[in-house]
């Protein structure tokens, strides 16, 4: 009776004050935050450390228990406790020894279908397809430019983000939180480095990642249209002789164009007007809706 009464009063107070504490309630949000993120240690070390800590705390707990109760330690089950402790410790050490798979290992092990799509060029999207998605308000397009900062500063597609390959595993956690209708497009000068980046992101279980076919060189081949006046004044990106699209295997992943200045996204080709171009491409993007995280 007393208990139920307290419960009702508690519910009443809570429901009438919850708005006032909601600021605090939603404060210090850290997202998916684990011990590995906190301590910056490899997973295996954490696992082994926690197990050792647990053994120590179990022993300490029994010491405290006996001290508080004034009882003598019960030795009858020591054997089972030691067996249990030994087996979990051995398992933890094995886990630490094997280590967690790197993004590339995960890519090779977990995503054979993706490797097939890569080989069949099903994930390399043509520049017009990318432009159509940039112009598409229903899809959020996140462009990741994995070239050197120098190349990025010379020219990049407007709103493309410059990231290094090393940052990708960390960044992928942010990317996974984005809404399901987010399209990720990685790009380099040709395709080689973008393909590396693509493998890492796929290995980190990010959905809807595509590669810009032929990279920035192909983008410029498609959209670097300048008038004669600009060309003669030398204020426009120089034309490069037409070449077939360089794939990861054939390209050198270097920028083939010459730039009058490092103007980044200030060139017209950085932001082509979607209405001026016809979208002629083989559609390859198949947006996959998010599979909710399981095992909650």
């Amino acid at each position: 009776m007393f208990f139920v009464g307290g419960l009702s009063v508690g519910i009443f107070i809570f429901s009438n004050t919850v708005d006032r504490i909601s600021d605090f309630w939603n404060s210090s949000y850290m997202g998916r935050y684990t011990l590995m993120d906190w301590l910056h240690l490899p997973t295996g070390v954490i696992v082994a450390g926690i197990v050792i800590l647990a053994m120590f705390l179990f022993w300490g707990a029994e010491v405290v228990e006996n001290a508080v109760n004034g009882t003598k330690p019960d030795k009858s089950k020591t054997k089972y406790k030691l067996i249990g402790a030994a087996s979990i410790s051995v398992l933890a050490l094995i886990v630490a020894f094997i280590g967690q798979p790197t993004p590339l290992e995960r890519y090779q092990k977990f995503f054979p279908d993706k490797a097939e799509q890569l080989a069949n060029r099903e994930v390399q999207i043509e520049p017009p397809e990318l432009l159509s998605y940039i112009a598409n308000d229903h899809v959020r397009t996140v462009m990741l430019d994995v070239r050197d900062e120098a190349d990025y500063n010379l020219f990049h597609i407007k709103d493309a983000k410059n990231v290094s390959i090393d940052e990708l595993p960390q960044l992928s956690k942010e990317l996974m939180k984005m809404p399901a209708n987010t399209l990720f497009v990685v790009m380099s000068n040709d395709e080689a480095r973008a393909t590396e980046a693509w493998k890492i992101l796929v290995g980190e279980s990010v959905d809807n990642v595509y590669i810009l076919e032929g990279g920035i060189n192909n983008w410029l081949a498609t959209y670097n249209i300048v008038n004669e006046e600009e060309r003669l004044k030398g204020t426009a990106i120089a034309f490069a002789p037409p070449e077939p699209i360089a794939t990861a295997a054939t390209g050198t992943d270097t920028l083939r164009y010459e730039f009058p200045a490092a103007l980044g996204d200030q060139y017209p080709a950085a932001e082509p007007n979607p209405e001026e171009y016809e979208f002629e491409f083989t559609p390859k993007v198949k947006l996959k809706t998010k599979q909710p995280a399981g095992g909650g």
Binding site: S28, R32, T34, V95, Q100, P101, F110, E204, S205, G296
Partner: peptide, 18 residues
């Protein structure tokens, strides 16, 4: 996860509000 039987990135981890 180490043996390749579980994709840890897809395991639900409750979000932290410290």
């Amino acid at each position: 996860a180490a043996l390749g039987g579980l994709d840890y990135n897809r395991v639900f981890v409750n979000e932290t509000y410290l």
